[in-house]
Nucleic acid binder design. Structure first.
Length: 981
DNA sequence: ATAGGGTTAG
C-alpha cells in the first residue's frame, strides 16, 4: 500500500485524475485553468495530449482554452500552430483575443494577425485592441496608430474610455500632444486614468505648466486623485520647472502625500534606507530591521510613509507593543499619521500586538479611512476574541454604503466561526458575499466550509467544496476537519487519500487531520503510513502534528510506540503532555497518568483545563480521593476550576470516591443545563447505592427541561438495580424508548438483567437475555451466576457457567463463581472439579486485593499477606478486632472460604482476607471517628461485608468500601447497600 | 497595509 501510494505521488499528473474519471469538458477546462494559473507548460501539454486521446473532440471552447494556455505558458509557436489549424469559421472573438494577446510583444506577426481579423466577420472589443495598442507602442509606428484610430472609429469604439485613453497615450508618446488633447477634449466621460494619461503626457513632454492647469480642471470635476496622479504631480514639484508659485501653493494640500510618491531615483537616502529595511523584513530578519531603523533615526534621515509601513509590519511580526508605541510617536511627529496606508499599518500593528483598544482609537481618529482600514479592524476584532465587535463593524461598514471585498467577508466569517452557535449569521454573510461577488474567492469559500461544517451543515459545506474553482489546500483541510468534527472519519481519510493520489502535497495541517481520522477509525495501518509521511517531510518536530500522531497511537492502544514517540519530543507542550496523560487513562494506566503529570509539573509546563479534566478522571477511576483533592486544589490555583468539563469530572470524581456531599456541593455550582453534570451526579449516586436520591435528581433534571440521554438511563437503571427497585427499572427501561426514543443498548439491558438477578428473579433475567437483539455479554452471565450462588440454584448456575465459559474460556471469575455455587451447596467434590477445570484451562484466579490510602501512601494487601513492614502488629490487630466483634454477635460465614479444609482453618483464612487487613491497618493508623476508605479490586466477600458492619458499630467508625461493583457505606452496623449487592 | 484550514477532555 505504501509503495503504491509513493509511486502514485511521483508519477501522477498534478490536477489530472485518471482519464476514465474525466467525464466532461468543464473538467478539462478546470485543468487547463490550473496550468494557466501555475504557468505549468508540461501540465498543459499533458492535458492536451490526453484530450486528443480521450476521444473528446476539442470544440471551440476547449480550443480557445488550449490557445490561451499555450500563450500564457510561454509556448507561442504551439499557440500559433493550433490557431492556424483552426478553420476561420471556428474562430470566435475569444480565439482572436487569445492569439492577439499572445503576440503583444511580436509586432510584425501581430499586425499581420490584426489585418486578418479586420477581414473576418468577428467584431473586436476593447480587449481585442489592447495588445494591438501595445504593438503600436513597441513598433513606434505612427502610421499604425493612425490606422488603428481609424478602425476604432469604424467599429464605434472611439469614445470608449479605455480605447481613447490608449490612443491619447500613444499620440503623446509619439510627441503629437495636439492630437492627444483633441481626442481628450472630445471625450464626454473621463475617468481618473484618462486624466492621468493626459497629465502625464504634458509632464513627459516638458509642459509642466499645462499639466498643472489640467490638474486644476481635474480638481473641479470632484474626482479624487489616485496614486498615479500624485506620482505625476510629485515629478512636477520635484522639477519646479515651468511652474508658477500659486500652482505650487495649490499643491501644498497634498504635501505629505506627494512626498511619498516622490519616486526620483537619484539614490536619495530615504529610498536606500527603505530598501534595506524591506530587505530585512522579507528575509524575516526583524531585529536587524529594528537596528537599521535606529541607525536611520540617528543619521537624521527623514522617514517617509514607506519607512513606517515597513517598520510597523516588522513590529507587528515581532509582537512588541512597546516598540510599536514608540514608532507611533515618531509617526505622529513626522505628520505622516494621516496618510491612509500608514494609519492602516498602525491599526494592524496594534491589532497584532494585542491592543485592539489602541487600534480602535487610531481608526476613529483617522480623517480618511479606506476599505483596508475597515478590513484590518474587522479581522483584528475577530482574532482578538471580540467577535460581536467584528460583526458590529461589518454592519457599520454596510450601513455606510461601502461594498465589502473578499478580505472583509473572510474576516467577518472568521468571527462567526469562533462565535459558534449555529450558522444563522454565516448564512446572512454568505448572501452578502454572493452580492459582492466574492464567494468563489478561496479564502471566503474556505471559511464558509469551516463555519457550515462546524455547525453540522455538511451538505452546504460539501456543495461549496465541490463547486470550488480548482484545488486549494486550505479548503481541503477545512473539509477534512469538517468530516472529523461530524464524526465521519472514513470520509475524512478518503479525502486525504484522494489528495495523495492526485499528487497534491499535504502540509502539517493535512497530516494532523489525517492522523486524527486514522485514530478515530482505530486504523493503525493507515496511521503508520501517515506517520511515515510526517517523518519523511520532517514534520515530527511540529507539536501540532506530533500530538496528533501520538493520539492516533494511543487511540489504537499502542502504548509502547506512543511512549517512544512522546519521549522523542524535545520539549513537549501542554497539549502533548495532556495527550500522553489522557492516553494512559484511556488504556487503563491511571497510575502512570498521575506519574506523567508529576513529570509535567517538574518540566515547568503549565497544565490546562484539558489536563485537569483528564487527571480528575484518572483519580475517579482509581478512587483516589486524596489525589483527587490535590488535583482539585491545583485546578483552583491555576484558574481552571470553573471550566465546565473540569467541574463535571470533579463532581464525578467526588461521587465515585464516595464523597457525595462534596459532589453535591460542586454540582450546585456547575451549569445545570448541561446533561453531563446531571449524568455525573446520577451515575455517582447510583453507584453509591443512593437510588432514591439518584431518582430524585432524575426527576428534578426532567422538570428543569434537560432531556436525558443514554448515559442518564444507564445511571437511572443501575440505581434501580442496586436498590432492588425492579418495577422502577422496568418502568424506566420502557419510558426510555417510548418517551425519549432512545434505543436500549447492551449496557441498559445489562442493568435490567442485574436488577432481576439481584432480586432473585433468575427465570425472568434469563428471558430478558434471550429476548435481546444482541449477544449477551460475559458480565451479564456473571451477574446471573452470582444470583444462582445466592439462590443456591445449582442447575441454572451450571448452565450459565457453561455459557460464560464459552464466551470467555479463560475467565477466572467464571470458575470461581461456579465453585462458589457448589461451595454454597456444600458439594466440595464439584468445587474441586471446577478448580481442576480451571487448572486445565490454565486459568488463575485473579488475586483479590484491597488498599487504603493513608497520608499519601497507598497500602496494598492481598489475602494472608505478610509482606507489610508492620505485619505482626496488623495480624494482632485483626485477632483483636475479630474477638471484639464476636462478642457482639458476629459469626464467621465459612461459605465464603473457598478452600476445602476443616471449619476452623476456614475461619482463620477468612480472618486474613485483604479487606480485613486493610481495615485493621486503617483503624490502627487513623484517629478515632475518622472515616475509613478502603478499595477492593473484586467484589467484597459476604463474610467480610458482615464483619465490617460489626466493626463500624463496635469501633464507631464509618467505613466506605468500594468494590468492583459499587460502594458500601457502613455506619453503626448497617450498610448502605442494605445487604443487597 | 488587510483574509482561510490544525493537537488534548466530561
Amino acid at each position: 500500500m505504501h509503495l503504491r501510494l509513493r509511486a502514485a505521488t511521483s508519477t501522477a499528473n498534478p490536477f489530472i485524475p485518471p482519464a476514465h474519471l474525466i467525464h466532461s469538458i468543464p473538467q478539462w477546462f478546470s485543468i487547463l485553468r490550473h496550468a494557466i494559473a501555475a504557468s505549468d507548460l508540461p501540465l498543459g501539454k499533458r492535458a492536451h495530449a490526453r484530450i486528443l486521446t480521450s476521444g473528446h473532440h476539442p470544440d471551440r471552447f476547449l480550443t480557445n482554452n488550449l490557445i490561451t494556455m499555450y500563450s500564457k505558458c510561454g509556448s507561442l509557436s504551439s499557440a500559433r500552430k493550433l490557431f492556424d489549424t483552426t478553420p476561420d469559421t471556428s474562430r470566435d472573438l475569444v480565439t482572436w483575443n487569445a492569439i492577439l494577446s499572445a503576440h503583444a510583444d511580436k509586432a510584425r506577426d501581430g499586425f499581420h494577425l490584426f489585418r486578418l481579423l479586420r477581414r473576418s466577420f468577428v467584431s473586436a472589443t476593447r480587449h481585442t485592441l489592447a495588445p494591438v495598442f501595445k504593438m503600436c507602442l513597441l513598433s513606434a509606428s505612427p502610421s499604425a496608430a493612425e490606422s488603428l484610430h481609424g478602425y476604432a472609429v469604424k467599429i464605434g469604439l472611439q469614445w470608449d474610455v479605455f480605447v481613447a485613453g490608449a490612443l491619447v497615450n500613444i499620440y503623446a508618446k509619439f510627441g503629437r500632444i495636439r492630437e492627444a488633447r483633441v481626442l481628450f477634449d472630445g471625450m464626454g466621460l473621463r475617468d481618473v486614468v484618462l486624466w492621468n494619461v493626459m497629465m502625464k503626457a504634458y509632464v513627459d513632454t516638458g509642459l509642466e505648466y499645462e499639466a498643472l492647469l489640467l490638474f486644476s480642471e481635474f480638481n473641479r470635476t470632484g474626482l479624487r486623485p489616485d496614486d498615479v496622479t500624485l506620482c505625476t504631480l510629485a515629478r512636477v514639484v520635484k522639477s519646479k520647472q515651468n511652474v508658477l508659485e500659486w500652482q505650487l501653493k495649490q499643491l501644498k494640500a497634498y504635501g505629505t502625500k506627494l512626498f511619498m510618491y516622490d519616486d526620483d531615483d537619484d539614490g536619495s537616502d530615504v529610498i536606500a534606507w527603505n530598501k534595506t529595511l524591506s530587505w530585512f523584513l522579507q528575509r524575516g530578519e526583524t531585529w536587524e530591521a529594528v537596528d537599521c531603523f535606529v541607525d536611520m533615526i540617528n543619521s537624521r534621515v527623514a522617514c517617509d510613509g514607506l519607512t513606517f509601513v515597513v517598520m510597523l509590519s516588522v513590529v507587528a511580526g515581532l509582537n512588541c507593543l512597546e516598540l510599536g508605541k514608540q514608532i507611533h510617536g515618531i509617526v505622529v511627529r513626522s505628520g505622516l499619521d494621516q496618510v491612509v496606508s500608514v494609519g492602516n499599518c498602525l491599526i494592524n500593528m496594534y491589532v497584532k500586538t494585542g491592543s485592539v483598544s489602541r487600534a480602535r482609537t487610531v481608526f476613529w481618529q483617522m480623517n480618511e479611512v479606506d476599505l483596508v482600514s475597515w478590513n484590518t479592524m474587522i479581522s483584528g476584532c475577530a482574532l482578538s476574541g471580540l467577535e460581536e465587535c467584528s460583526v458590529g463593524m461589518f454592519v457599520d461598514l454596510l450601513r455606510g454604503g461601502l461594498l465589502p471585498d473578499q478580505f472583509t467577508v473572510a474576516s467577518v466569517l472568521r468571527a462567526c466561526s469562533s462565535l459558534g452557535g449555529g450558522c444563522h449569521l454565516a448564512t446572512q454573510i454568505h448572501a452578502c458575499a454572493m452580492k459582492a461577488g466574492v464567494v468563489l474567492d478561496s479564502f471566503v469559500s474556505t471559511t464558509l466550509i469551516d463555519v457550515y461544517s462546524k455547525s453540522g451543515k455538511m451538505e452546504e459545506a460539501e456543495f461549496l467544496f465541490v463547486n470550488q474553482d480548482g484545488f486549494d489546500l486550505a479548503s481541503w483541510n477545512a473539509m477534512m476537519h469538517g468530516y472529523i468534527v461530524s464524526g465521519d472519519f472514513p470520509k475524512a481519510l478518503r479525502l486525504y487519500i484522494l489528495m495523495q493520489e492526485s499528487g497534491e502535497r499535504a502540509n502539517q495541517i493535512t497530516l494532523a487531520n489525517a492522523a486524527k481520522a486514522a485514530g478515530g477509525l482505530v486504523g493503525l495501518k493507515q496511521g503508520k503510513q501517515i506517520q511515515a509521511v510526517v517523518v519523511k517531510r520532517g514534520f515530527n518536530l511540529d507539536l501540532f502534528v506530533i500530538s496528533g500522531v501520538l493520539d492516533m497511537y494511543l487511540k489504537c492502544g499502542e502504548m509502547e510506540s506512543a511512549r517512544r514517540i512522546f519521549n522523542e519530543i524535545p520539549s513537549p507542550d501542554d497539549v502533548a503532555w495532556t495527550t500522553m496523560i489522557s492516553g494512559c487513562v484511556e488504556n487503563g494506566q491511571e497510575e502512570h497518568a498521575l506519574f506523567t503529570y508529576h513529570h509535567m509539573r517538574l518540566s515547568k509546563v503549565q497544565p490546562d483545563e484539558y489536563t485537569f479534566a483528564t487527571l480528575v478522571k484518572a483519580c475517579s477511576l482509581l478512587t483516589a480521593l486524596e489525589q483527587g483533592r490535590q488535583i482539585h486544589a491545583n485546578t483552583v490555583k491555576l484558574n481552571c476550576a470553573f471550566d465546565p468539563f473540569v467541574m463535571t469530572s470533579l463532581v464525578d470524581m467526588y461521587a465515585k470516591c464516595g464523597n457525595i456531599e462534596d459532589a453535591r456541593g460542586l454540582f450546585k455550582r456547575t451549569n445545570t443545563s448541561r446533561i453531563a453534570s446531571w449524568n455525573a451526579m446520577i451515575v455517582g449516586l447510583a453507584q453509591h447505592g443512593n437510588a432514591e436520591e439518584a431518582l430524585q435528581f432524575f426527576e428534578e433534571m426532567k422538570s428543569r427541561g434537560v432531556t436525558p440521554d443514554r448515559v442518564t438511563f444507564i445511571g437511572v437503571l443501575s440505581a434501580c438495580s442496586h436498590s432492588g427497585l425492579v418495577s422502577e427499572a422496568y418502568e424506566n427501561f420502557y419510558s426510555m424508548q417510548k418517551i425519549y426514543g432512545i434505543e436500549p443498548e447492551i449496557e441498559h439491558y445489562s442493568c435490567l438483567v442485574d436488577a432481576l438477578s439481584r432480586a432473585g428473579r433468575i427465570r425472568e433475567a434469563e428471558k430478558v437475555i434471550s429476548s435481546m437483539p444482541f449477544e449477551a455479554s460475559a458480565s451479564m452471565y456473571r451477574t446471573l451466576l452470582n444470583a444462582c450462588r445466592v439462590q443456591v440454584d445449582r442447575e441454572t448456575g451450571k448452565r450459565v457457567a457453561e455459557k460464560l465459559l464459552a464466551l470467555e474460556p479463560s475467565d477466572s471469575a467464571a470458575y470461581v463463581l461456579l465453585s462458589n455455587v457448589y461451595a454454597a451447596a456444600n458439594q466440595w467434590e464439584n468445587v474441586a472439579s471446577a478448580r481442576n477445570m480451571m487448572r486445565k484451562a490454565n486459568v488463575k484466579k485473579d488475586p483479590g486485593f484491597s488498599w487504603v490510602d493513608l497520608k499519601n501512601k497507598v497500602h496494598l494487601f492481598v489475602a494472608g499477606d505478610r509482606s507489610h513492614e508492620e505485619t505482626d502488629v496488623i495480624y494482632n490487630k485483626v485477632e483483636y478486632i475479630m474477638k471484639r466483634i464476636r462478642e457482639e454477635g458476629y459469626l464467621p460465614d465459612t461459605d465464603f472460604a473457598l478452600v476445602d479444609v476443616e471449619e476452623e482453618d476456614k475461619e482463620c483464612s477468612l480472618y486474613y482476607h485483604s479487606e480485613k487487613l486493610a481495615i485493621a491497618y486503617g483503624l490502627m493508623k487513623t484517629p478515632p471517628s475518622t472515616t475509613l476508605r478502603v478499595i477492593k479490586n473484586l467484589r467484597v466477600c459476604g463474610d467480610c461485608h458482615n464483619a465490617i458492619k460489626y466493626i463500624s458499630k463496635v469501633f464507631e467508625r464509618e467505613v466506605v468500601l468500594r468494590d468492583a461493583n459499587r460502594f458500601h457505606h457502613f455506619r453503626s452496623g448497617v450498610c448502605s447497600c442494605g445487604d443487597y449487592w
